[in-house]
Design a protein around this nucleic acid. Structure first.
Lengths: 194, 194, 194, 194
DNA sequence: CATGAATGAGAGTTCATTCAT
DNA sequence: GATGAATGAACTCTCATTCAT
């Protein structure tokens, strides 16, 4: 596949992303993507076989870019609490900015997949972020910033609260207040004075 | 619609429930339900107009039955902690018994609905359970069973953790261990010795 | 068929008439009539086999009643011109009262029938009215009220003009003015001063 | 849509025309047209959305071709009477050639349309032809070929007679004689010796 | 590589008609 | 007579997928 094709593939993925953000995963058809990209029906099939494959690649692209963005913002002299708060603020943005994320589509995609499968990217991401939080809490505890008995558990608990908020955003709805209160609750239970 | 029809309607709802449990919401077609019920194509339309309506009625049926089941199990002399633990055990069962609940279908259903709508049953249920938990914690605090600064916040936090576990069960997968650890964490943070 | 049944049959025909007036002929289904009559699906089939048969009987009922109504209004000492004008006024009412006549339904019904068939009721009616008009003109000519060379032709011409107006009412639309002008033209060509 | 498609679209319209001539408008289904064209179910939808749209385009095609045909036949030195007679002969052909015109389908189509709508093509055609006839009569009167008091009225009367004959052809049936007699009557009333 | 016309399977929906009660 | 549940045929419309150009 030449340079040109790589560009086109990328263009398709970016456009498809918008479609997934808009419509979730299940309802998106190859036709939707063809139309959004303004390419030919057959053209799309040269690059991808089905929406499943496209979504997987969109997620891959997403996670690659996400990492970059995230690491940029951490200042050199940031404390554990600073970083945790920054992280929670990022999550808040994503939680409230329902309109520009793939959450719903991702849920729908994984509803159709066996969670136990080894290549469950979402699971890997979850574990990875959980470990980062855990490490962060450990450092915080060492520095005397946080208090907690079991850092691993504390980290996992935070992860599930965030998951709970994320899914709630798409089902029962959440407000800025809701998120702020949960963030405060998390920080308080780590002994952070806010 | 006579007596007979009521029975048949119930039969359809129960059969449709199985289909929704199996396939979620979005992928289920009227044809799927027709075939599962072994009735004629047109026959189903005598009772329901579309899968949306069927699902709403399945949820209604579900919640009516759920209420009965729940209230039965509370002993007269149960303490707040007893009841909370019972509640969490019920949740655990549901979380792990992925094969026989409507969670995934419900998520898919609400993905297609505006969360803000007044008739969001899920939201009402959430609020209702949250209030019960809150009350329970208040009683526990009064009895000296629990310790917590803000009962309302504690209740909401529990709700979001449970939501987080529920959605995770369908995306990244959860194990008995995971659930047990989260339940322990919840109880510990209320100061319950386990 | 007992007295009761006769009444019910009549009730069905009268109700069906309204449906035909509203929707024409082709689009009317047995279901429409069942619902309009608020009787059972099977019940209708006890009396009629299909919409075709119902429409035929509606037309029969219509023509029987129409005759009565028409003859009532002719005064004893009316001149040929009086009667012709009365007739044309009646036609005018029907032409403009699109909402309460079976014209459209009748057209649709006969579109599906071979015009040549012996039992073409519409044709018989046409011929019958044409003859009445012809006779009327003859009398008018004898009395010196009208002038015309060929009464038969004049009558037929009037009939076709009226048919033209009737169909136009349902396709391109007609106004009171249009009808008035045509009536005037007809009368003038018979030499009537208006 | 490329060159090839234009041809196919035309082919579909021509084939659909035959179907409409055969079955009228209301009874024609997309399936009928698909089968007549011997194309695939979905194929037709690439070109047209519904029978309504197809019929509109068939009428458009029809009127474009009709115009050409009509203007060809008028000789340079034709008198008003010549042209009128030619016109009436054309009408006669159409009236009697029930098997190859869209009249019935057009009636059915307009039965489902509000006559008052601005885009009522039939009305425009009617008005347009009426004006041509009127002009023709005016010229004839100037030349001393015709006699009439109100050319406009005379023209409209002719139009309605023709409409009456046209609809009658589809309901009560007409014969060559009937048409000939009406044409004669029209010409006579304009003072033409035949 | 790229196009887009074409196919056909399949979902939704409506009704005429039947038949057990 | 009367009911209305039930059936199944028929129609509309949409897409995934292919393939000649």
């Amino acid at each position: 596949m030449g340079e040109k094709s790589v560009q086109k593939k990328r263009y398709i993925l970016e456009t498809a992303r918008k479609v997934f953000v808009e419509k979730g995963f299940q309802k998106v058809t190859m036709k939707d993507i063809v139309e959004a990209c303004d390419i030919s029906r057959g053209g799309l099939y040269l690059y991808f076989d089905n929406t499943n494959q496209i979504f997987l690649e969109v997620m891959k692209m997403e996670s690659e870019e996400a990492d970059d963005v995230f690491s940029d913002r951490i200042k050199e002299d940031a404390t554990a609490a600073d970083i945790l708060i920054l992280f929670l603020q990022e999550q808040k943005k994503e939680l409230l900015g329902k309109k520009d994320n793939l959450n719903r589509a991702t849920y729908e995609f994984y509803f159709e997949t066996q969670p136990e499968r080894k290549d469950n990217v979402l699971k890997k991401q979850f574990e990875s972020v959980a470990r980062v939080i855990e490490k962060l809490i450990e450092i915080g505890v060492e520095n005397g910033e946080f208090y907690c008995e079991d850092c691993k558990e504390a980290a996992r608990n935070i992860m599930y609260v965030l998951e709970g908020l994320k899914i709630s955003a798409h089902t029962i709805g959440i407000t800025v207040d809701t998120v702020d209160r949960e963030i405060l609750y998390i920080l308080k239970s780590l002994g952070v004075e806010v």
